[in-house]
Amino acid sequence: MSDTPAPVTPSRSLFIAGAGVLLLSIPFFAFGLGFLDTKARVEFSCQEGGPCTLVRAGWLTREAPVTFRLKQMTEARVDRRRSSREGENIYRPVLVTPQGDFPLAAHWMEKERQAQAPVISVNRFLEAGGLPAFSMWHDDRMRASRVGMLFTGTAVVVFLLGVGLTWRAVRRRGQERARGPEVSTG
């Protein structure tokens, strides 16, 4: 057994490590919160006789609503395209206006029947001259925010590690002060 004490990390080194780890958590928080706020909830509602509003929302914020008068809406249709992975068709409901096409769902769907349901509702509303009022929504926020949850979870773990290192540095600094200045002999 040796008489030499175990090496002790000085408080200054612990402070530097703690600060570095705390700074490392910032980009994880930024990207995590950004991905969590992906606008994957689409709400479309029409009052009797119009107007209709389209709102996209994430977990943290909502976009300003887009309002359409009854005369501005041409139709609703299902857009189709080939999936890059399986080569099969994927579908998305879209509101067609002279200003452009506005998706009624944030992501493409694998089943045409699922994409067709909102299209039928909107076209019935338009054919009936804006009667009766209706509201619908498509919420894909859970699917869209998986990456955000991973980044945010990592940010919390890294942040807690940084706080732990900083706390150890504060305690070590107190121990160093209690011992007093060390005199080196050389």
Rank of each mutant, 00 (worst) to 15 (best):
R141I: 10
S45A: 06
V55F: 05
G50W: 00
L70F: 03
L60I: 14
F134S: 12
Q114A: 11
P103G: 12
E48S: 15
V147H: 06
M73W: 01
V55S: 03
N89H: 12
E86F: 04
R85M: 13
Q99E: 12
T67C: 10
D139F: 12
V147Q: 08
G87E: 09
R69N: 15
T67N: 07
R143W: 15
C46S: 07
L54H: 03
C46E: 02
F134I: 05
R82V: 15
S45Y: 09
L54A: 07
R80I: 04
A57M: 07
G50I: 00
M109C: 05
K71R: 14
G153Y: 02
V147S: 06
G58N: 02
G148I: 08
R69V: 15
R82T: 15
W137D: 09
I90Y: 02
M149I: 15
A155Q: 11
M73T: 06
T74C: 11
C46R: 05
P65L: 07
S135W: 08
G129S: 10
P51L: 00
I90K: 02
L150C: 08
D101T: 05
V66M: 13
V157S: 08
Q47C: 09
N89P: 15
F102T: 03
T97K: 10
P51G: 02
N123I: 01
Q114S: 12
W59V: 13
S121A: 13
L54G: 01
G130F: 04
V42Q: 03
F125S: 10
R77Q: 05
A64C: 13
V55Q: 04
L150R: 09
T152R: 04
S83I: 08
V66C: 10
W59L: 07
E110R: 13
D79A: 12
H107A: 08
E75A: 14
V156C: 06
Y91G: 01
E75H: 08
V94Y: 01
D139N: 13
A155C: 09
V147L: 13
E112N: 11
F134V: 06
V157N: 07
H138I: 10
E48R: 15
C46A: 06
K111D: 15
H138P: 06
A76G: 10
G58A: 03
R69F: 08
A76K: 04
L104P: 06
F68I: 03
V119S: 04
P93V: 04
Q114L: 12
V96C: 10
V119Y: 00
G129Y: 00
H138E: 07
F44A: 11
R124G: 13
R77K: 06
R141D: 02
M73Y: 00
F102I: 02
T154C: 09
S121R: 12
L131H: 13
I90C: 01
R124N: 15
G87D: 09
R143C: 05
G58V: 04
G58S: 02
T152L: 13
H107E: 08
C46Y: 01
G87C: 11
V96T: 14
T97P: 15
T97C: 14
G153W: 03
A115R: 00
T152H: 06
L126F: 00
R81M: 05
S121F: 01
P93R: 01
W108M: 00
